[in-house]
Design a protein around this nucleic acid. Sequence first.
DNA 1: CTGAAAGCGCTTACAG
DNA 2: CTGAAAGCGCTTACAG
Lengths: 342, 342
Amino acid sequence: MNGKRLGIRDIARLAGVAPATVSRVLNGQKLVSEETRRRVEEVIRTLDYVPDATARALSVRQTKTIGTVVPTVDNAFYASGISAAQKYLAANGYTLLLATSDYDPELEFEQVRNLVGRKVDALILRGADHSPVLLQFLAGHGVPWVAVGSYSPQSPFPSVGIDNHAAGFRACTHLIDLGHRRIGLLGARTGNNDRARGRVRGAKDALAGAGLPLPEHWVFEVGAGLDDARQTAKALLAEPARPTAVVCTTDLIAFGVVLECARSGLSIPESLSVIGIGDLEWSRHIQPALTTISIPTKEVWRRACDFLVHSLAGGNVCQHFECGFELTVRETTASPAIARSA
Amino acid sequence: MNGKRLGIRDIARLAGVAPATVSRVLNGQKLVSEETRRRVEEVIRTLDYVPDATARALSVRQTKTIGTVVPTVDNAFYASGISAAQKYLAANGYTLLLATSDYDPELEFEQVRNLVGRKVDALILRGADHSPVLLQFLAGHGVPWVAVGSYSPQSPFPSVGIDNHAAGFRACTHLIDLGHRRIGLLGARTGNNDRARGRVRGAKDALAGAGLPLPEHWVFEVGAGLDDARQTAKALLAEPARPTAVVCTTDLIAFGVVLECARSGLSIPESLSVIGIGDLEWSRHIQPALTTISIPTKEVWRRACDFLVHSLAGGNVCQHFECGFELTVRETTASPAIARSA
DNA sequence: CTGAAAGCGCTTACAG
DNA sequence: CTGAAAGCGCTTACAG
């Protein structure tokens, strides 16, 4: 269209007012006469002027942007959270700055550093389990942040999520209630991951509470990704003395077990009961449909954003929010009695 | 830590140099003496100073940020692309600004407007099928962009992706080659979506080329989402005179058919052959494993980013890049003869 | 090799 | 209600 980029000064000139006035109508301030406002808006519209948000950011010291770093978005669980967050933020005038860490704490820090340099108004981080130096960095730079995924009322930092210990406990209890006595445990890596740790502990506590043993060879630590899950499932199935049921720390892990059983002709739940945690979209579509602990992931992220948006606006918001979860019984769990009669 | 935010001036003062010098070491310019550089870096390190990227952006007129707007990230297909893009960009000093449109062109425009206001250096948009006013807006503001997902050599704008017509053609041809004569077509909505349109036309052309009819009631237009796919699949199965095979424009749609057949006890491929396009992670895990056209989605996005990064750096890059696809035969397609003998 | 100064495009007291 | 001026935190010719 025209030679160089349009600025607020151009609009001002064409509307016959001062830049300050244009700025006022841009920001919807009341102290502008109806007539002036109309004139300015007219010029803005005809020229298709879009104010430079980076310049504004420099002036007002806020970018209206929230950063987040997740391990990967290539995983239904994170994708769903990211999606919900993005929508909520967009609806509130914010934009999501996305970074991924590939499960690497070093990379996570680097990404946080980058995001902070880009002056995000706040950060959403997975879990409350971060290195002291990261925490100190955030504090030193005065960047607000919220831990998403685990409800950590004892943490000095805001958090929103479920009680992971309770979720692991509930999942395991379901199996125990069905009559299982030989229960295995497939958990995500617990290093640097308070959510996985909470779930694993919850399941173990349930077992201990019921006086059930948990032999070393019935607990597996599984990597991220469906292929890792299948790998582990294969190892489990190779066990000569198999458990009659397994609690999986995530649905993805449970998928691996279900898929691997199908591959080796082992019928679920007759030969093995499996329960997951998460309730992804595929959980109800897979055959047999997965019994799991349903986590309102989208709500969790939405609330995390909500917390940030409100506290950035100066509101006084509750620091910790616990989201509920519930047991969703589908087709992968049954009483071990079924196995005998089968 | 300290009272107010650290600025380049603080570093300069503490290092006993001018802000310009600090700027020079920050940007790795050669024209700084070793000793000065070391001194400045020392101060930066001890104070954990992170330069303000928004201020820099205002000065150098580039934000080192790339925006993208996709329908949703809550879909394995997009999630995978976004993920690849984010990684590639991060590795090259860029950050991804993510926006979603929920399949709404109006919202897409609004998001583009927002991203442009945030001064993204360039944009990645899905497909080449955009409204003239959007195109004009982008041109007027001088924002470079690349269409991702379809190879459109005739388009005046850069594109990277596969030849969707050819993909649809190939999928349908596979079915024809197996001996099918009654072939249905389940396609994603084609409005505002050149990729879906290309695939549908490709399949139709293959049918026409083989002299096969395509009755009205064998073609379905299906909404986004797995549930929509199952809905459509249900309608298909209810048809009294069913086709013996269907080509699905996306794997997600094919999943719907596979899942719905399982639910109603229809065996695949004996009673129905189904082929998808995409090859998502689940395609090889689902039972039976899906025959499909494999698209290197991550590579497509990586190349789109690569194009942008290089052309922003002033390089002369090829405007259109075609990615290859290939037929991956798994378990959901077979000759119709099998049905008779079954 | 290093510094002083102007400028990037906005916003916001401060006057009027 | 409106404008002139200073400032946000960097970078970059221009001098030296």
